[in-house]
Design a protein around this nucleic acid. Structure first.
Length: 579
DNA sequence: GCCGTTTTCGGCCCGACTGTTTTCAGTCG
């Protein structure tokens, strides 16, 4: 099996865990974690970069030593340092670190003192009351360990889709805002950065009496468990399993706290390094010079102290946003209000829940000027995909409906399946009658990389192809992306003027943020499509816009911000205009 | 193990909460 970026990142993470349990130099441990994060952050496979002769030490956090380790890992499939580490300590110990309350020191103590090498063995030891005998542990620690192991067995600690977290988050926020003495309350963290999933919710509150608010939140109706509760910080678990951290800070620290808890961790560290360079200190209470506060009541004040403009939360991943801010080169990010239409929707003709007219009505309600109907083609049998005759009838229906509509235009399309050999599921004779053809893959998702890439490239060579929907086919948390050489896909999309979709379904968000950014940088036009199967799902547009913002996109990078006439021009231009 | 507006050596982000301590280590975010 070829070594993927996540294999490298996972190996470095495991090695870091084992080194930490073995009480290695903490900065060396961090170096491996930082390197893992860098590798995970690459939109291109490391093995492609090596094959192209690129120098890995150009990447942040990768020096000569790690570059060499990665190179040998890719060549041999083995990370020698990890093999050496697992000779000293059982690899199963790293699983103990996933238990809340157990870190490297306790994992080491459990191994040395009780010979524990797995979560199961730890559970047995705790049930036998052998854990409490260890120095540094007590009865409470032992009970907490058992409690956490049982909770994890019931509820996997998987991250929650942002869209699923929203309802819980907004209800909690409303409730907190109504507590006595609360001034401001907002959700920070990855939720505010609009990441596709959240691990927990970070709530920042300002109040005249912080301790009173900290006590009050433990009585929120949806609390399943109070994990900890102090004067300024409370950690809860909601009944649904989602963890919530609530920090109450003074009003003068609101901006600093929002900045601090919005993160990302890497963005914060980068900014704190800058503070150190000036001899300042940056924390959740403000920016300090010799214990004198110089900024912190607003986020703007914090950035301003560094002579930087405010950076939108979606960009705060330490992926060049601080450097861009420094050069006054931050993008003007796309906004929902710029969206003029939607090019990916379904109706009851296939697996949608609403008919043509209902979808049109719902699109008009959202202020859109055009709506693309793109039902499935026949290969998607479970969705009752259209054959040429049924699609022809839908085309006639749309023509008739357009006669009656004056403020919305229905565009004729089809989400036509790209078959295994790259050919399309419907004949050109019917596809020619559409306003645009959108291609997608729904089957044979397990092909190896070369075949999968050739398949989609073949479809992109079809002269009618205009958009590729959900290009990688991933389902967040359930199914990884298909194996594709995205560099070649992007190159072909730019050359053939085919738009790639950011699918706005919360479980897809495909292309993802980094790939969408790489596509744009390669000269590709993006389109945000809701893939709506009901009128309500048209509101998924904002999730797609969130992802586009994380991809550094402006309105001009997204096809469906264009007025109808310009959209038609773009769709009609095709490859013929190239020559 | 990485890195350089203080540096090629000597730094490396920082504060809150808990439980086990008898003044603080460990963990977390």
């Amino acid at each position: 099996m070829p070594v993927r970026n996540r294999d490298i990142a996972n190996a470095f993470e495991t090695l870091a865990d084992l080194l930490e349990i073995g009480d290695a130099n903490p900065f060396r441990v961090r170096a491996y974690r930082n390197a893992a994060s860098t590798v995970r952050d690459q939109s291109r496979p490391i093995r492609d970069m090596l094959a192209a002769g690129e120098d890995l030490t150009e990447l942040p956090n990768i020096g000569d030593d790690l570059a060499g380790q990665i190179e040998r890992f890719v060549e041999t499939g083995h990370l020698a340092r990890l093999d050496a580490a697992t000779d000293k300590l059982p690899a199963g110990l790293t699983a103990l670190l996933d238990i809340n309350g157990i870190g490297p020191k306790r994992a080491h103590a459990l191994y040395e003192g009780l010979g524990v090498t797995s979560v199961d063995e730890l559970a047995a030891a705790a049930r036998d009351q052998r854990v409490r005998a260890l120095s540094g542990f007590g009865e409470k620690a032992e009970q907490r360990i058992l409690h956490e192991i049982e909770r994890q067995a019931r509820h996997s600690p998987a991250r929650t889709l942002l869209a699923d977290a929203e309802e819980m988050a907004e209800s909690l926020l409303d409730w907190i805002r109504q507590r006595a003495g609360v001034d401001k309350a907002a959700i920070a963290g990855s939720y505010r950065r609009r990441r596709e999933t959240v691990g927990d919710l970070d709530v920042v509150v300002t109040a005249s009496d912080p301790a009173a608010v900290s006590r009050a939140v433990t009585r929120y109706e949806d609390v399943g468990e109070v994990i900890s509760s102090g004067e300024t910080r409370t950690t809860l678990r909601l009944r649904g399993g989602l963890q919530v951290d609530i920090r109450v800070v003074p009003a003068r620290a609101y901006g600093a706290a929002m900045h601090y808890f919005t993160g990302s961790r890497d963005h914060n560290i980068a900014l704190r390094r800058r503070a150190q360079g000036h001899g300042w200190k940056l924390n959740e209470y403000g920016l300090f010079k010799d214990d004198q506060i110089i900024a912190g009541d607003t986020e703007e004040s914090v950035y301003e102290a560094f002579s930087l403009p405010w950076i939108p939360p979606e960009l705060r991943e330490n992926r060049g946003e601080i450097e861009a801010a420094e050069e006054d080169a931050l993008p003007t990010l796309i906004e929902v209000a710029e969206i003029r239409g939607n090019l990916h929707t379904h109706t009851t003709a296939t697996d949608g829940k609403a008919d043509l007219e209902e979808m049109a009505e719902a699109a008009r309600d959202r202020g859109w000027r055009y709506l693309g109907i793109s039902d499935h083609s026949r290969a998607v049998r479970v969705a009752n995909g259209l054959d040429a005759d049924r699609l022809a009838r839908q085309i006639d229906e749309i023509d008739a409906l357009n006669e009656r509509l004056d403020d919305l235009v229905i565009l004729k399309s089809c989400e036509v399946d790209i078959l295994r050999d790259g050919s399309l599921d419907l004949p050109d004779s019917i596809l020619e009658r559409l306003d645009y053809v959108m291609g997608a893959m729904h089957g044979q998702l397990g092909l190896e990389r070369r075949a999968q890439t050739e398949r989609i490239l073949e479809a992109m060579d079809h002269p009618l192809m205009r958009i590729i929907a959900h290009p990688t086919g991933r389902l967040i948390g359930r199914r990884g992306p298909v194996a594709l050489d995205l560099d070649r896909i992007f190159e072909a999309a730019a050359r053939n003027r085919i738009a790639l979709e950011i699918n706005a379904q919360p479980k897809r968000l495909d292309l993802d943020d980094q790939n969408a950014r790489a596509a744009r940088d390669a000269g590709v036009m993006l389109v945000i499509g809701t893939d709506a199967h009901s009128p309500a799902q048209l509101d998924f547009m904002r999730h797609g816009v969130d992802q586009a913002r994380r991809a550094w996109l402006s309105g001009s990078d997204v096809l469906n911000t264009r007025p109808l006439n310009q959209l038609r021009d773009w769709l009609a231009r095709g490859r013929s205009a190239d020559g």
